[in-house]
Structure formats: C-alpha cells, structure tokens
Computed example of a mutant assay.
Amino acid sequence: MEILQALFFPPEQPGGVSSMVPYMQDRFNKVGWPTDLFSLPKRIRGKGTEEVRLHTFDPEPYRDNPIAAKYLQTLSDYLWWTKMRIKRNYDLIHAHHPVAALVMKQVFPDTPLVVTIHSSYERELILNGKIEEGGPEHRFLASIYRELEHAADRLLTVSDSFRRYMAPYVDDAEAIGVIANGFDERRFKPISHENEVTQLITVCRLVPAKGIDILLRACAELKDKGHPFVLHIIGDGPIRKELETLATELGLYDDIIFYGYMLHPEEFMPFFDVFVLPSRAEAFGSVFAEAALCWLALVGTDVGGIGEQIEEGVNGLLVPPDDAAALAAALERLITDQTFRYQLARAAWDKAKKAYSLTRVISQLKQVYLEAAPGAAES
C-alpha cells in the first residue's frame, strides 16, 4: 500500500502531530508500505485562486469576515500547491489537518481518505481572546467538522474527550474513531539525576490557552511559602513579553528561565523533575506523554485529553483550570515529597510506554487503512 501523509505545518515544526508523523513514515516504510509526507511551506501564501468546493454549508455569508476569508484563502493556497507538486496517485491519503483533508478530497476524489482531527482551531481562538464563542468565526470554523465528516472515508481524533467536543457539529459522532498519539520511545532517554533544588519545566506555545499566567501565580505562592524551585519555560509566542513582565511583577525574576523556541525539547527534559502545564483546553496534550517518557512527574489540568492521560494520584496530579491555589498545592506536594514524586514519575513512564507507543499507533492505523482501502494489496 502506498500512502500519503498530508500535514499542514512542515514536519520540522514542534508539536505532537509534526513530531509524530515523520516517525510514522519511517515505520511504514520499514514494513513495506511506501509513505510520503506533504505540507504547505510557510512562504506559500496568497497564491491560490481556485476555490475548494464545500458541500455541507455555504461559505459565502462568511467571506467578509477576516478569519473566515483567511481560512478560505489558505484552502486555495493548499489546493494550488497540491496540484503543482503532486503528480502521482496513492492507494490512501491520511490527512492530519482540515485544510489538507478538504483539498486532498477535491484533488483525489477517488482515493480513500482518512482524516485525523488533532485539535480545535476555533476553541484555541476563543481561549486566546481572538474570537467570541457563538460569533460568525466560531460558526464558520465549527461547520468544518461536518464538512470533514462528509469528505472522509474514516474520521479519527485523538481522545474520547475531543470526540465528545465534536459531537454537536457532526451527524454521527459514534462513527469517529479514537487513536491517541504515539511516540517513538527511542527518542526519549531518561537520565538518573538528583537536583538539589526542584526543577520544574513546561513546554508550550506562549498563548493564553496554555495557562502560563496561572502557573506563574502558583509559583509566586510557592515562593511566598519558602519552597525553593526553578521554573524552565520552553516555547515562544505572542504573550511572551506579557508573561516576562508578570514574572517580574510577582518577584520571580530569579526563579524562572524563558528559553524561547526549541526544536527537540525531549532532549532537554530528562534533566528536570516535574512537568507542569495548566492548559485551559487540550485535545490530547502530546507533551504530557513526552514528559512521561522522560521520567518526569506530571501536573496538569483536568481538561480534554490530559485527564485521559493522568490518573489523579497514580501517575500524576490533576487540578482544575484557572486555579492557581490548587496548582500551587499540587506543586508543593511534589517539591516536599521526593518519594511520591518518584512514584508518580515511574507510573507515568510505565503507562506512556504501554499506551502511547508508536508501535501501537502503527498497528491501529494499519487496520484502519486496510478497512478504508480494501483493494490495496498488503505487502
């Protein structure tokens, strides 16, 4: 079976999807299923003039809206790039982004299409204060889910929580399959170490949806109580300067290091003790599984896929979103009880090795591919 994995972001971008799919490509190639990757380069913007046809809703009422107009132009750009670059057919296409999925369906209507929805653009925009819930942008972006349902031979997502989120926007949520992200465990090399001062680490894009403002306020409470720590923040984004200012205002200047963007944070994480990310929403939260494979204790919010990865008090600690006091209490517990911290980290590593291995993902996807393209011979 010859497969095309269609991304939106180039595979060198950080994040669960872009860091997972190249390893999927390698595994499929090794088992004799030739696999190519395809994505839209950042430089390709405003090139497309042909429209992508939508079948389940009319985009015309939204064309004067800047966010909807940009989305529609991106569809045209991806269509232009696809027609220019892909000159062959595949047995199956697996799209990992709505834009890629809708374009591939139009260009290759007879090729079986599997679509995985990894995240929610509209929810991210709402949480980041860019659009209003129920507004025209929200209605336009939410309509894409039913369009994907119409286009895909198999529709997948990464957590039961996110399938429930999509349910109001599709006709048959029960038909959506769930395959959690997987990771090549060879990338992760836990390192035995003892830090005199507890080292906290978070890895994310610096946007409001990730709740780093809550993390800073929790750290201020820890400092007020006299608990020593260092917080390492890996990532960049539009609110970095705002967060740096808040850290200074909270008296945390000497306790926090902002590193900016880092391509392979998993090479850095094993030297720390606790991974913490108080997201306001996550479809899956790949970075928690990655941190677990680095043998870190986990602290997260009980939202989306995070709550499916962490069993409270067994392989990590869960707190409500937007609750700095609860987050501070969870971190205090791990700072003051190294034995408990180690137990959580070991349990998190055990679960991640079993539940989030790339081998498991490949096995599940092979079955989906064979069901979606039964005529393609298995090598």
Rank of each mutant, 00 (worst) to 15 (best):
E196R: 14
V197Q: 00
V197W: 00
T198P: 03
T198I: 12
T198E: 04
Q199I: 03
Q199R: 14
L200M: 12
I201V: 12
T202P: 04
T202F: 09
V203I: 00
C204G: 10
C204M: 08
R205C: 08
R205A: 09
R205G: 07
L206F: 10
L206E: 08
P208R: 05
K210C: 05
G211K: 05
I212C: 09
I212P: 02
I212H: 09
L215A: 11
L216K: 08
L216T: 09
A218E: 02
A220G: 11
A220F: 13
L222D: 06
K223V: 01
K223P: 00
K223N: 01
K225G: 13
K225T: 13
G226P: 10
P228T: 01
F229G: 05
L231N: 06
L231A: 04
L231F: 09
L231P: 03
H232Q: 12
I233P: 11
I233S: 10
I233K: 06
P238I: 12
P238W: 10
I239W: 09
I239Y: 07
L243V: 15
E244R: 00
L246Q: 06
A247D: 05
T248Q: 13
L250A: 12
L250W: 13
L250M: 15
G251W: 14
Y253F: 15
D254T: 11
D255H: 15
I257D: 08
F258W: 15
F258R: 13
F258G: 12
Y259K: 12
Y261L: 15
L263S: 14
H264Q: 14
E266L: 10
E267I: 11
E267D: 11
P270I: 06
P270V: 05
P270W: 06
F272L: 10
F272I: 01
D273N: 02
D273W: 02
V274F: 09
V276W: 01
V276C: 03
A281E: 04
A281W: 06
F284I: 12
F284Y: 13
G285Q: 00
G285N: 01
S286C: 15
V287T: 03
V287A: 02
A289W: 06
E290I: 07
W295H: 10
W295V: 02
L296V: 11
L298D: 07
V299D: 01
G300V: 11
T301M: 04
D302G: 09
V303C: 08
G304F: 07
G305A: 03
I306R: 03
G307L: 00
G307K: 05
G307T: 02
Q309C: 13
I310G: 00
I310V: 07
E311R: 14
E311C: 15
E312M: 14
